[in-house]
Design a protein around this nucleic acid. Structure first.
Ligand SMILES: [Zn+2]
Ligand SMILES: [Zn+2]
Ligand SMILES: [Zn+2]
Ligand SMILES: [Zn+2]
Lengths: 141, 141
DNA sequence: TTCCTTATTGAGATTGAGTCTCAAAGAAAT
DNA sequence: ATTTCTTTGAGACTCAATCTCAATAAGGAA
């Protein structure tokens, strides 16, 4: 039994949505890798495995997953958004190589705390944040 | 004499580009306000002032300005990118209201330092960063 | 100034990611 | 089986942004 499948079922039920072959396939594909992939890569991977699905359904399902905190959307500055599952992971942000596209993950508690603090100072209620460091990786310098 | 005009001329000259009415108009429009505006808003504002310019030229000119550090590009998560001039300003990041689009600017030295540190740890050379806090402003909570 | 070369401009076509439409298929309920 | 409601998918569409290319403008030379 694939990780998070029950959680997916619960979410769908809670949202009044049905558990379908396509939705299951999208989730299984996303959970099958820790990479940061775009919607089209996920779509192609599902097709390659013989499951019939459309791009529209992939996008729609990813939306549900992102809204329900099972998947994270990652805007890498150029090209399509990338997605990663959030099962068995901690919150992290990204360092992205502007030359080769390599992505590393980082997490600094102190930065997270300072974010909360500054948001409060401005009277905002923090919902989410984007923190991306763009630069050149070891190989590309 | 508009702020930064000489700098613009130097940059254009250095890049082997010509100083044209359109490029001057784009710069003057961007420098005329501290708002965060998108390319189309800037385009419309220039037209309204009677200068003939095309969208293509606005985009092309903004590219030059961004590359040469006179303008900052700001991806606000949805819709077109926004731009702000960098004359007489310090580096800052943004808090964005996901309800009404309001944008506040913040700057925390400690966060900037921690960013440098974490980038070095990963062997990257930091070129730029995006740090955006999305949430609900006082009015929208 | 005039001439010449090269860069720039702009209208509209194109791209690319993502969303929408709507008829057909599928699920659940009675 | 019938009805009702949801989901799917092919392709149309949107929107920001980029590209094309003929016409125009800038800057240099003389
Ligand atoms: Zn690299
Ligand atoms: Zn990640
Ligand atoms: Zn607000
Ligand atoms: Zn700003």
């Amino acid at each position: 039994m694939s990780k998070g499948l029950n959680r997916l079922k619960k979410i769908l039920h809670h949202e009044g949505l049905r558990f379908t072959t396509q939705r299951e396939a999208v989730w299984r594909e996303i959970i099958s890798s820790d990479d940061h992939r775009d919607a089209d890569e996920i779509y192609m991977a599902i097709r390659k495995k013989g499951v019939s699905v459309s791009r529209a359904t992939v996008y729609r399902t990813i939306d549900v997953l992102v809204k329900n905190n099972m998947v994270r959307k990652l805007d890498v500055g150029t090209g399509p958004s990338k997605f990663e599952h959030k099962i068995d992971t901690y919150h992290h942000d990204h360092i992205i190589c502007i030359q080769c596209g390599r992505i590393e993950e980082f997490m600094v508690d102190q930065i997270e705390d300072l974010q909360d603090k500054v948001t409060q100072e401005y009277g905002f209620k923090l919902v989410r944040h984007i923190h991306q460091l763009f630069g050149l990786c070891k190989n590309c310098q």
